[in-house]
Write a protein that binds this DNA or RNA. Structure first.
Lengths: 116, 116
DNA sequence: CTGGATCCTCAGGGATACTG
DNA sequence: CAGTATCCCTGAGGATCCAG
């Protein structure tokens, strides 16, 4: 077996970038929330209903995280009952590439493993 | 605000696919390991040295997971000291799209948030 | 060297109740 | 409705020791 000395030439900074991305999208909720919101502006309960199994507490926390990372925008209307709308930023739209890739691979993998 | 009734038309099965993908790639090690192995066949310690912060226990477990998902292949040479080589499968190569997307977005996000 | 076995810690995340 | 506060538990992941 030949040992190439430069076989990881393309993955020093790249690995960092991937790690950065994963750090922002970590947990099992962030991407689901973003997908929901990329489909259009929604209210808190609306998101909660759409994402199966998420608790209010988690949704609240995740939305705050995403807001800090400038991926979602929170807009409060002064009304009763309270109305708060969430939507994605331009920056979040750049994630669609990632989402598409994951979606395609998800299909592929399911076919490979389960539907073999 | 107008409410579209079909604003989530494109994300029922798609969401499932994304969730499937995330389930296979969960944790912070799987993708790093795959990236390392996509760069070439490697031995256990070699991977461990390449991935910063991973413990032997984790690496062992993650490799087993990846093997079960048919993403890596384990090859044992009967020798002393023991030699075990890991490499990626064809199926793992289809992940490169995902990895590229994550890498690109990682760079983009870093520029957006940190280097603004 | 390649890991399995064990023990431990801590953060992710669930359930419930409560406020404005 | 839109959350916050609290309590609790599970499981990811680290450290260490040990065997083939």
């Amino acid at each position: 077996m030949k040992q190439e000395t430069q076989n990881n030439d393309c993955s020093k900074a790249d690995l960092m970038a991937v790690k950065d991305a994963l750090e922002v999208l970590n947990g099992r909720w962030k991407l689901q929330i973003l997908i929901a919101l990329l489909n259009g502006t929604k209210r808190f309960k609306q998101i909660a209903r759409e994402i199966d199994g998420i608790s209010d507490r988690m949704l609240s926390k995740e939305l705050k995280d995403l807001e800090e990372n400038q991926l979602v925008v929170r807009k409060v209307y002064d009304a009763f009952p309270p109305i708060v709308e969430y939507s994605t930023t331009k920056h979040a739209e750049t994630l669609s590439t990632v989402i598409y890739a994951l979606r395609e691979w998800g299909y592929l993998h399911r076919k490979k493993i389960i539907g073999k």
